[in-house]
Design a protein around this nucleic acid. Structure first.
Lengths: 336, 336
DNA sequence: TTGTAGGCGTTATCAG
DNA sequence: CTGATAACGCCTACAA
């Protein structure tokens, strides 16, 4: 906080500005927060005082008084993957334009104590909360409810949401990919999935779809979460002997898919003739790679933006949709 | 903030806990902040009251009183690139373990008003600040000084730092790459650089190095910031006619380098025989691609961690190095 | 080890 | 349109 280092100018406060402008502190506050309710004259005088003194309002004090922190907390597993950095980026941007800041917490994929994390976050009295996924302990749900804070969950629409939600059903997506493959006459399938809840859900949906089509699952591997290019390469090398004549492979992300396609090239496995590959996420690499990789597109940036907008609507006292299902779309490119 | 929605439980405060435990509010505060100074007996009783009531301390009130927000602000251009998401990730992690939260602001690459952004950030009274780059307007420097907040700047060591710095000289790095290429007998050079300050600095250093070696610059393009795979592909296609017998190309990031290598393959330009490529950043793609791409490695995660540690040291009243030069290392792989 | 008094800097509220 | 007063919820400083 603005405790000035020894020898520095003591921080300018609202009373200093008020004194300088010859008005009451409350008027300065109005100039800052509701300028319309101040005469143009006074406003100019106060603004001059603010500039001359270099006054920077203390939003912590303001927050305590107004009970609004103008701060939103976002909790995501990591920002090392576009999967989360994209939504966080647009979420932060959108809220920033509305005068809100985002407090970022990274929960990782391990067995972090979500209860403790949420408690620590709520202690900062955010005006709203962004969570990843909709599966939370009863303790967490109770804390959120008691806090009375608007919550928006992203990415996962399988669970019942705590408050608001922007996402889709990952299992459904997995099934859609199985349908897509089956429509091309595939009968042998494989899947490389990261071990996180959503990667797992996509895999399970895929397997269900495969079963529905009477297909055979020739290989199945669980990768670390988050997983990357090198995981994909290693996994493909691992399952290569099992591929046979013609196999359709679903990967839990475009990075994994790119790794698989790359390793296939190294091993001399023709793509898509002998190995068809579908990724997930429509990351730049799936478009930029040669051959371009078939993927399932989900607009992460739109998710972040919508999450922000819903939160803003609710904080403005309005209402917002409790559940927004974002579309996913299979982009057939050169690897299928 | 915890204004309870109509009908919800009113927020529990420290006095409620105190009453329930039969102690003074101050004792509850001590149990929370300095448990050592409370008798085991009392502590247990208070803790029980806390649990029973589901008390979540209000750190905003605490912050106003103690003048410590236990919050650090981070300002980076974007988190869409590993260049920044890596440092931010480790920065956030490191501080999180020390009980600090990170307030994230994205400044973009455009002509954002840094003054206004810094002012808005300082209004939240962060205990510390992470900035990208060390080039700031006099106004910004003055605000930072007046605020008396520890500041750590990352990525850029060319400018004189405001307070603390963790980075390196990008021009020097560019020169080192020119030396590296020249040592392999290259005489023709090209460069694809993003238009941001650091990409530009690397390019300029590279050009200086090339000149020193008496080399010829056959092509030079400025890419958007941040730039990606597709920018690299397009740019390589653009400069392909200029490449001649054997050219050494520096790209401003591994994504651009991957794009260049990919497009070269498509165009039938042999890498590294006719086109040698060096990227920057040691992103996973440079390791995971085939062929693996020569790059300059800088440990972004370490930068973020060190930035956090220096800030923590200073906030603990200790001292921290004013200037940490992080090493960069050319990783010769298959594209040179 | 525990308690009391007072203030952190701002804004809600009501009055003029 | 402007001002006075009283919180907001906690912690520093000092006292017991």
């Amino acid at each position: 906080m603005a405790r000035s280092r020894s020898g520095a100018t003591p921080a300018v406060k609202i009373v200093d500005v008020a004194a300088r402008a010859g008005v009451a502190p409350m008027t300065v506050s109005r100039v800052l927060n509701t300028p319309d309710r101040v005469s143009e004259d006074t406003r100019a005088r106060v603004q001059a005082a603010i500039d001359e003194l270099g006054y920077v309002p203390n939003l912590i004090a303001g927050g305590l008084s107004s009970r609004r922190s103008r701060m939103i907390a976002a909790i995501v597993p990591t920002i090392a993957s576009p999967m989360f950095s994209d939504p966080v980026q647009s979420f932060t941007d959108t809220l920033g334009h509305a005068g809100y800041r985002v407090m970022l917490s990274l929960s990782g994929y391990g067995n972090t104590d979500e209860d403790a994390l949420i408690r620590a976050v709520l202690a900062r009295r955010p005006d709203g909360l962004l969570l990843t996924g909709a599966k939370h302990s009863p303790g967490v749900r109770r804390m959120l409810r008691d806090a009375g804070v608007p919550v928006v969950e992203i990415w996962d629409a399988a669970e019942h949401s705590t408050d608001m939600l922007v996402g889709f059903d990952h299992a459904e997506l997995g099934e859609a990919v199985a349908d897509f493959f089956a429509a091309s006459g595939h009968t042998r399938f494989a899947v490389l999935a990261a071990g996180d809840p959503r990667g797992t859900a996509r895999r399970d949906g895929f397997l269900r779809g495969v079963a529905r089509h009477g297909g055979a699952v020739v290989a199945q591997r669980t990768l670390p979460a988050p997983s990357g290019i090198l995981d994909g390469r290693a996994a493909l090398r691992d399952i290569a002997p099992l591929l046979g004549e013609r196999t359709a492979l679903l990967c839990s992300s475009d990075l994994v898919a790119f790794g698989a396609v790359t390793e296939a090239r190294v091993l001399g496995i023709p793509v898509p003739e002998r190995l068809a590959v579908c990724g997930f996420g429509d990351f730049e690499i799936s478009r930029g790679a040669e051959p371009p990789i078939t993927t399932v597109a989900v607009d992460g940036r739109a998710m972040g933006r919508m999450a922000a907008e819903n939160l803003l609507a609710r904080m403005d006292g309005g209402s917002a949709p409790g559940r927004v299902l974002v579309p996913f779309r299979i982009l057939a490119r050169a690897t299928t």
